[in-house]
Design a binder for these strands. Structure first.
Length: 299
DNA sequence: GCGTCCAGGTCTACC
DNA sequence: GGTAGACCTGGACGC
């Protein structure tokens, strides 16, 4: 069964920039088609139906979501797909104060011109935390492999190629050998069991009233989440107070601003300090600038 | 084909 | 509080 949903998007939303702005688009159950400029995601709906939603911007301002399922989709299913897409693409995120701040920096004028700044996230904080843990101390290729394996082994099947992301309950019920995420396996299972048991409510973090530094300490209470991973999770929650410096960003910063000479974390912190609560996002935009799509090239 | 290194870090024991 | 060493995995690289 196929159904097309048409979703109106904000004027400052650049679909492919958002998809392409980080590696999250390549972690299962997300997948992308660069040639068609399409982003897909396999998702289990509240009704129990499993769908594959493929997003494309065929005309400016309107996102077409092609939803495929083995079953007939009702209005409630369609509305849920819309909500999932809006959440993943952060359509409700207000970047006006970032654009206003960067107005004082000509070298960043391209950010507003290209409607950059949004990055993909998962429908649940649980999924984002699991993927962040899987991204530590390994190559990106391995992160993709582990995410794909988690879906195939623990997720629900739509087709041979399409599986959902595992629920906390599914992950909590498995052994370390089954999860197969290396030394991270016990961390993932412990996280899932705490979530299932109600000891940890990671979904509440998106609306947490806590100060970012306080929330960061709470996030670091998860085993396998250290300084870098906590910063990265905060970014996925829409908080950019911290830089989430990893080896790739440090190397990249030295190439762009240090003429290849490695700078200290303190120097990098100082460089982006003027951008206040947006500094983590400004760092990311600065380091990924060449990957951003110039306005006018979007389809 | 095999061994080694290392990659988008974190934990723990020890000082 | 600071630091060294161990840790899964798999691709890249040298031999």
């Amino acid at each position: 069964m196929k159904r097309d949903i048409h979703l109106t998007v904000p004027g400052d939303f650049n679909f492919w920039n958002t998809v392409w702005s980080s590696g999250w688009c390549g972690l299962a159950p997300f997948s992308f088609d660069e040639e068609r400029r399409a982003l897909s995601r396999v998702q289990r709906l509240a009704s129990g139906k499993i769908v594959n939603a493929t997003m494309m911007e065929r005309r400016k301002g309107v996102l077409t979501i092609r939803v495929e399922s083995r079953e007939e989709l009702g209005e409630a299913d369609a509305e849920e797909v819309e909500e999932v897409v809006e959440g993943c693409l952060r359509l409700d995120e207000d970047l006006s104060s970032l654009y206003a701040l960067l107005g004082g920096y000509p070298e960043f004028s391209w950010v507003e011109e290209t409607c950059a700044g949004r990055t993909i996230r998962s429908p649940t904080v649980f999924e984002d935390v699991v993927k962040t843990i899987c991204s530590t101390n390994c190559s990106w290729a391995l992160t993709k492999a582990v995410a794909g394996r988690l879906c195939r082994r623990l997720g629900e099947r739509l087709s041979e190629e399409h599986y959902t992301f595992p629920t906390p309950a599914r992950m909590a019920s498995k052994t370390e050998e089954f999860v197969r995420a290396g030394y991270r396996s016990p961390y993932l299972i412990e996280l899932a069991r705490r979530v299932v048991g109600g000891a940890l409510d990671v979904e509440a973090w998106r609306d947490s009233p806590l100060d970012s530094a306080v929330l960061k300490r709470e996030i670091m209470g998860i085993k396998g989440v250290g300084d870098y991973a906590a910063d990265q999770i905060l970014k996925l929650l829409g908080r950019y107070d911290f830089l989430a410096l990893d080896s790739w960003l440090r190397r990249r910063f030295s190439q762009i601003h240090g003429e290849g000479v490695k700078g200290s974390d303190g120097e990098i912190e100082g460089f982006y300090a003027p951008f206040g609560r947006w500094r983590g996002l400004v760092l990311w935009l600065d380091m990924t600038r060449e990957f951003q799509i110039p306005k006018g090239r979007e389809s």
